[in-house]
């Protein structure tokens, strides 16, 4: 196409002055990208128009600028900028604090849970120690009272060494001469087999009298009350005791006095 003729046709002026219709404008915009001469002609006319308008400028009324400066939404640089800056920092800081606080909450909750668990365990341990201690104290008191009984002058001590074949065994009977209560100290007796139990016998007028079976007891085991006896003996019987002693299962025996 004849670019020179196109440029001089007046279409550029029509376009720049906003008088071209949409089709003419689109055509010119497309051609101006294609032909640098057209772009140059547009630029030149625009520059000339601007220079011409500046050359004929008319000073506006002062009120126009005043009103514009008062009305338009300018960016507030100085003070507001600082405020915005601070509030941004504050917002960022509060978010960080929230995160830190939330993490601390989790951390402290975990700490609290484990402390609580540990506390519960300690509580249980304390209770168990307390009851152990009570048991020990009870045992101690028992032993003390046993010792008191054994050292009582009215207490008759009957030592029962092991019979033939059971020489390693030993048991002692403490017999209250006043109340006639019988206490047994199983010093050395082999552990009873399953289903078996030791039984104490008092020999009264040559006949054995049941003085009770020996249960597991700390220190002295309280047996039956025996008013009179010439000797004591222990046999191993079936659990629960027997009416008459099994003589070949005698372990220890001792005479009174």
């Amino acid at each position: 196409m004849d670019i020179k003729a196109y440029i001089e046709s007046g279409v550029i002026e029509s376009y720049v002055l906003g008088m071209a219709d949409a089709q003419e404008a689109a055509e010119l915009e497309q051609l101006s990208r294609q032909y640098p001469e057209i772009r140059k002609a547009i630029d030149e006319f625009e520059a000339a128009l601007e220079q011409q308008a500046l050359a004929t400028a008319v000073v506006p009324a002062p009120r126009v600028k005043e009103q514009l400066l008062a009305e338009l939404d300018f960016e507030k640089k100085s003070k507001k900028g600082v405020v915005i800056g601070w509030s941004r920092y504050l917002a960022a800081a509060s978010v960080i604090l929230l995160v830190v606080s939330a993490s601390l909450n989790v951390y402290f909750y975990k700490q609290f849970s484990s402390a609580s668990t540990a506390y519960q365990a300690l509580l249980i341990e304390k209770t168990s120690l307390l009851s152990d201690n009570q048991q020990t104290q009870t045992k101690l008191l028992d032993l003390y009272s046993n010792m008191q009984m054994m050292s009582d002058p009215s207490m008759i001590k009957v030592s029962m060494p092991g019979v033939a074949g059971k020489e390693n065994s030993l048991a002692t009977v403490f017999w209250d001469s006043k109340s006639r209560d019988v206490y047994l100290l199983p010093n050395k007796l082999p552990e009873a087999a399953a289903g078996k139990q030791y039984q104490l016998w008092a020999i009264v007028d040559g006949k054995p009298v049941d003085a009770g079976v020996i249960d597991a007891c700390a220190g002295l085991c309280k047996m039956k009350n025996i008013p009179a006896a010439s000797m004591f003996a222990i046999t191993l019987e079936n659990k629960g005791g027997s009416a008459a002693p099994t003589l070949d299962q005698m372990y220890v025996a001792g005479k009174v006095g």
């Binding site: 308008a53 400028a57 600028k65 338009l72 939404d73 300018f74």
Partner: peptide, 29 residues
């Protein structure tokens, strides 16, 4: 960016030229 100094510059430099354009159409000052 809503710069006030840029707007003032634009106004100071172009308001007269634009007013001359407006006056060619609106002939009441």
């Amino acid at each position: 960016q809503r710069s006030q100094s840029a707007f003032a510059y634009l106004y100071d430099n172009y308001s007269g030229a634009l007013l001359s354009i407006i006056l060619t159409i609106v002939n009441e000052e």
